[in-house]
Design a binder for these strands. Structure first.
Lengths: 337, 337
DNA sequence: ACTGGCACTCGGGAACACCGAGTGCCAGAT
DNA sequence: ATCTGGCACTCGGTGTTCCCGAGTGCCAGT
């Protein structure tokens, strides 16, 4: 029995509660929204909504507050994403356009998102796994050490110092570099292990120790970076919002890469927004917080995710609008570079 | 008239206040430390100490609390750095030894320091300015774009994408790369602008547009990275400590690179610890917080700084011990790689 | 120069009463 | 059926008062 008016009541409750941060009562509701009925009627509706678990009262004789389930219904059916203003759009564009490299793009994005939403922003670095090899470079550092650099098409650079078993001359290094580039150029990172598996055998015997050492470092670096890097910004915004749960837990979660990963969630369609409300998210320390996330990527490939984290009591339409817009702009920037 | 006993009293006050977080009174003092005199005597001493500005009372009829000036005296003359335990030493060593590249070193260091001190740790990336050029690489990405990579002797890698005015063939690029490496190899970064100033003139006319474009990007990247990168960790540790000043301000300062820079302070002798107590630090939002910092560097060169930030009421001897130890170990690691 | 005694101050906690927003329910109106 | 006005009831939050005890400053005596 959730007729239209009850839904309108729920929507009104969510909106009021989000803006005032106080439990909202029947009288205040009819005053602020013109529902055309009396407070008593609203009370009946509220009783039903409460019974169905969409709202709750903190104490007897207090107004109602949306539950996680209530927010969920609100997000799914009662609200629509609010697009950004023209000024905001332009600000995003100019701010992101100035980025000089991939690091810069990510840093700027996360700050931008934090400022725009006044919440904590989280951005995952573009995945390496769906990138391809652009170039491999070997730079001799000393007689027995060289630096191995791998550049991907997404502009990311992986570097490692390789300790060599023997003194190796420049010629050998140059040769190996050429061979590596020839066989790996354009190859997807996931395909690299296959490509190089039989590589030592195709080299003259005296080159094999060098090749083996370099390859082992290469493969190792691929595995290690599987765990993607995540950065956040805007922690100061947590200070204002009073959390039901201690904000210590929130800060801890933010510094725990693994937890963050899981919070951003699995990759989904880039244009789709994922919203996790309170208890829906897979980490007990974060009751009372919601996550709004979206994928981004250059072209049609989904590279990584970004989003914001804030109190359950957040302005979902606006937040979702900002996240979606930023995700799109970042995708554009990446596609263009 | 600061005789020995008064100093002992000050020391006792600082120690007790740090461990209990409550204003300490004359009676409690004589009980916990065997000073061999009566509370009344202590009271007289306290009155003098207060008059001289080393301690203060939050309200009439409350115990005394050290002032910034009191902490300063304590740090300078009444305490000595407490070395780490053997177990801690070993933990540091093994934890840092696993680092694979400079990024990893910094990340591990900052986390380690945060965990060790239970405060917010701050680490500055090794300075580029005192590094030298190890290698310059130009990688063609497409007909009109190439990636410029600069590798320093500290293992840091700077990368930029360069948009070219014209289609340029590989040969030209290779030639420019060779010239660049020949003239820049081993050169200090600060010397680079001089070295390349007349470089276009020494090239054949048809190479000059390419060279000019690449050089402008190179110089630009040097200037931009002057502002060094700083990372922090352990923000969750702020949640426990109740700050006199809102922790919003602290979090804001932490995300403001420029402020952090100034907090860590100017480079000083690597083995020296810098302590900034409360109002001594140059940022008004951080009254109530202290900074303990040290320089680190590979070999004898001072590269950058690291430190921790915490409430003025912190355990200085322990914190200073941890910061000093970590700075030394990081220096070792960097020197070895 | 130190000590014991004493009067004084005040912050913080406990007890208490009050107010008002909000509710649930019921009987009457539409 | 559905809505409305009325009414008794609940209870969180606030303001008041009171009291206790830790801590102080001062002074006279050792």
């Amino acid at each position: 029995m959730v007729d239209d008016r009850k839904l309108a009541v729920l929507r009104a409750i969510v909106e009021d509660y989000v803006s005032t941060n106080e439990p909202v009562g029947s009288k205040a509701l009819v005053e602020r929204h013109n529902l055309g009925v009396s407070p008593a009627t609203i009370r009946n509706d509220m009783a039903v909504l409460e019974e169905q678990g969409y709202i709750a009262q903190p104490h007897t004789s207090a107004g109602r507050v949306p539950t996680d389930k209530g927010y969920r219904l609100f997000v799914d059916r009662l609200s629509q994403v609010k697009p950004l203003s023209g000024a905001e759009r332009r600000a995003i564009e100019t701010f992101l356009a100035g980025a000089v490299d991939i690091d810069d793009v990510v840093t700027r994005t996360v700050r931008l998102l934090a400022q725009l939403t006044r919440q904590v922003a989280v951005v995952q670095y573009p995945s390496l796994t769906s990138s391809t090899v652009r170039h491999v470079e070997l730079v001799p550092l000393s007689e027995r050490r060289l630096m191995f650099v791998l550049i991907t098409n997404t502009g990311r650079v992986e570097q490692r110092v390789v300790e060599l078993p023997d003194v190796v001359d420049e010629g050998r290094v140059a040769h190996l570099r050429a061979v590596l580039n020839a066989s790996l150029d354009g190859c997807g990172l996931t395909g690299v292990p296959d490509k190089v598996a039989d590589l030592p055998e195709r080299l003259p015997a005296e080159d094999r120790p060098l090749a083996a050492t370099v390859l082992s470092v290469l493969l190792e670096s691929l595995v290690e970076r599987q765990e993607e890097k995540i950065v956040f910004a805007g922690a100061a915004n947590l200070a204002g919002a009073d959390f039901t749960v201690g904000l210590r837990d929130v800060l801890e979660a933010l510094e725990e890469q693994v937890v963050l990963m899981r919070l951003l969630g699995e990759t989904s369609d880039p244009s789709t927004l994922t919203v996790r409300i309170g208890s829906e998210n897979p980490y007990t320390g974060l009751r009372g917080t919601s996550i709004v996330a979206a994928g981004y990527g250059s072209g049609d490939k989904q590279l990584a995710r970004l989003g914001v984290l804030g109190p359950t009591r957040m302005d979902y339409p606006v937040t979702m609008g900002a996240v979606r817009a930023v995700a799109r702009y970042v995708s554009q920037i990446l596609a263009a570079s």
